[in-house]
Design a protein around this nucleic acid. Structure first.
Lengths: 202, 202
DNA sequence: TCAGAAACAGTCAGGTCGGACGGTAGAAGT
DNA sequence: ACTTCTACCGTCCGACCTGACTGTTTCTGA
């Protein structure tokens, strides 16, 4: 009689999945706190609390780990956006809310880790080939849900696409800037972005 | 009779200055092509074609070299902007020209190198304390010459300051994006930025 | 139940990087 | 001219990181 399925007996697949998740979470955390250069395999295994063999078993090389981290990040970021979209129900300030949701995707540790990998991919071809399609997925997901975010009323207007792209670029730039000197009154920037959306969508 | 003052006899200061310039130029080039992690002291000395001792004499540690590179970059970037401003005389499309000049500051290798140092400073406190004031200098220089760039007619209008900040952020974001997949038709973005400036400055 | 495979553990060798060190050549003071 | 100081040279050692390797435990299929 299997009263306690977990802890005593676990499927190999379950063990693998749990271990890989621990390792990838540790990798993302290390990327945020130590940067790409500081994210050594030893750093990751210590954070995850596992042995060297465990890490090398699941990810044969450091680059493999990073590539897997990229895909892990993609899933996490998309899940984050989806949860943000579903969580709140915008009634009145739809535009402000939408801009805030987008800004949220550039705020957390997920973007920081992605930025580190982004820069690192410049010199790691293997990482680059893994990164490009993943970033496209994230981008397409965000753009695909733009209509849901902003509502038909705004997203149908002529200049919407260009305005959205510019706000995304501006947010990326602001995020990159505030990676060091953290939050300098987001409210003004958000207001500017909302203003921009209003001004550029006829 | 000293027919050839150089080569045969050089002041110590001249030798030092020349050597440091070579080293710093090599450092910036390495940052662009190999990234921060790949900019090892050995890489730099090989690029500069100097011995290990020469590098270590002028820059006692790797961080010292990077800090000096930051200051070197600041000077170079400001000089770049100044030359751009002075070089061309805008007559008709003043706004387009100004936006283009700003965009130029995010294009070259100088911005790439700065971005690498920017990310690296997140984990190197010494580098961070050197970087922050330098970036402030660059920022203030750009903002200080905004009036000269855009002309009184535009820079005097109400929403100018916010619009400029947003364009700078957008350009920074676009630059960070195109660090990997290079230039994807700048013209459209530039047109968007000009449009933004027009729309947001009453 | 038992053999084989997969997951996990810990150690080792090879390689790279950073910085210390002793030494040499050239400039600057006297 | 002689000393002193600065610029420069090349080697060496310790620290670290990566991946290979062998040993051990846990699951799975027959």
């Amino acid at each position: 009689m299997s009263v306690q399925p977990a802890r005593t007996t676990r499927t190999q697949g379950e063990r693998s999945a749990a271990m890989q998740r621990r390792l990838l979470d540790a990798t993302v955390a290390a990327l945020c706190e130590k940067g790409y250069g500081g994210t050594t395999t030893m750093e990751v295994q210590q954070r995850a609390g596992v042995s060297r063999g465990a890490l090398l078993h699941h990810f044969a090389s450091r680059t493999d780990l990073m590539v897997a981290a990229v895909e892990h990040l993609t899933r996490e970021r998309i899940a984050e956006v989806l949860s943000l979209v579903k969580s709140q129900a915008p009634r009145k300030g739809r535009l402000e809310w939408a801009v805030n949701v987008l800004w949220g995707t550039f705020q957390g540790p997920l973007f920081t880790a992605s930025l580190e990998l982004w820069l690192a991919a410049r010199n790691d071809h293997e990482l680059l080939t893994a990164l490009l399609p993943q970033e496209r997925i994230v981008g397409q997901t965000i753009r695909g849900m733009a209509a849901d975010l902003f509502g038909e009323e705004v997203s149908g207007k002529p200049g919407f696409s260009e305005a959205l792209e510019m706000v995304l670029d501006a947010q990326r730039g602001a995020a990159a800037r505030s990676v060091l000197r953290s939050t300098d009154t987001d409210d003004r920037m958000i207001a500017s972005w909302v203003h921009l959306m209003r001004a550029l969508t006829t």
